[in-house]
């Protein structure tokens, strides 16, 4: 679309945008720079790859934390995706008694500050006498992932008219055949983005995990937290760069993957 001339001349917003992008990227660039710093302290002393070497050869705690994060992220995302997708299908097309209630309880967790969810789950688990550990972290992650999957799938479902479902039933499909042959294939992009969002959120979560975790259930963000809190090792810089690269690569492949699905 051709923009009218007076907008082109309006450069205030462009300037703000450019400065903002620099503001957003600058800290990450500093991290990249420092990850190659030879010295242990903050000041720059020279180029070195020692922290990367240490990250990959001598950081077993960190990799254990990464393993925990991966387990929790994949399992919680999977469960949240299955439950959330079914919920979205129900809410989008059918009227039932608890529909309004479900809409509210899928909305609330997204607007409540994370700490509230963390604290209430901690209190809940200890009240029930459930031992804190990977399982409680998993439960907490499903709980905060579920609403996101629900909404992403719902957004996708909203693009389709109910007549698609009626057409399927009309042509002879049972409810289950309709779910399997029409609803799921149609919703797949929404389901996939729900799943990937859930994985990302789960890998990312610190606050809620912090409250519901127990001995032996340190996730990567918790590991990073204690590293920041109790003496920063420049390994964290190297780790940050690897994670940044990881997210960029993941995001890139996710985009292509989603595009492929959408094109199908």
């Amino acid at each position: 679309m051709k923009k009218p001339d007076f907008i082109k001349a309006f450069s205030f917003s462009r300037t703000v945008y450019a400065v903002t992008i620099m503001f957003l990227f600058m800290p990450l660039l500093v991290l990249v720079l420092y990850s190659f710093n030879e010295s242990r302290s903050g000041s720059w002393t020279g180029f070195s790859l020692r922290w990367y070497v240490k990250l990959f050869t001598d950081s077993s705690d960190l990799w254990r934390a990464f393993g925990n994060s991966a387990i929790v992220a994949l399992s919680s995302a999977l469960v949240a995706t299955v439950i959330g997708t079914l919920g979205a299908v129900g809410v989008n097309w059918y009227r039932f008694r608890l529909r309004g209630y479900l809409r509210t309880i899928t909305f609330l967790p997204m607007i409540l500050p994370e700490i509230i969810i963390g604290v209430s789950l901690l209190v809940f688990f200890s009240g029930l006498g459930i031992r804190l550990g990977l399982f409680t972290v998993f439960v907490a992650h499903v709980s905060f992932n579920l609403p996101f999957v629900f909404l992403l799938v719902l957004a996708r479902l909203e693009e389709f008219d109910f007549s698609i479902i009626e057409a399927s039933r009309d042509l002879g499909a049972t409810e289950l055949q309709t779910l399997w042959r029409v609803i799921l294939p149609l919703t797949m992009p929404g389901i996939m983005s729900g799943f990937l969002t859930a994985v990302t959120l789960s890998l990312e979560d610190f606050v809620i995990t912090f409250f519901v975790t127990g001995p032996g259930a340190t996730t990567l963000p918790l590991y990073v937290y204690s590293a920041i809190r109790f003496g920063v090792s420049p390994v964290i810089n190297a780790l940050s760069v690897v994670m940044i690269l990881g997210t960029v690569v993941l995001a890139w492949s996710m985009r292509r993957f989603l595009k492929n699905i959408a094109a199908k």
């Binding site: 389709f160 008219d161 007549s163 698609i164 009626e166 057409a167 399927s168 039933r169 009309d170 042509l171 002879g172 499909a173 049972t174 029409v182 294939p185 149609l186 199908k264």
Partner: peptide, 20 residues
């Protein structure tokens, strides 16, 4: 009978073709 059990088929106003 459920819709899938009736020997009646419908051409929908918005076609309702399966986009996938």
């Amino acid at each position: 009978l459920l819709p899938n059990q009736r020997s009646v088929n419908t051409v929908f106003q918005n076609y309702a073709l399966f986009p996938h």
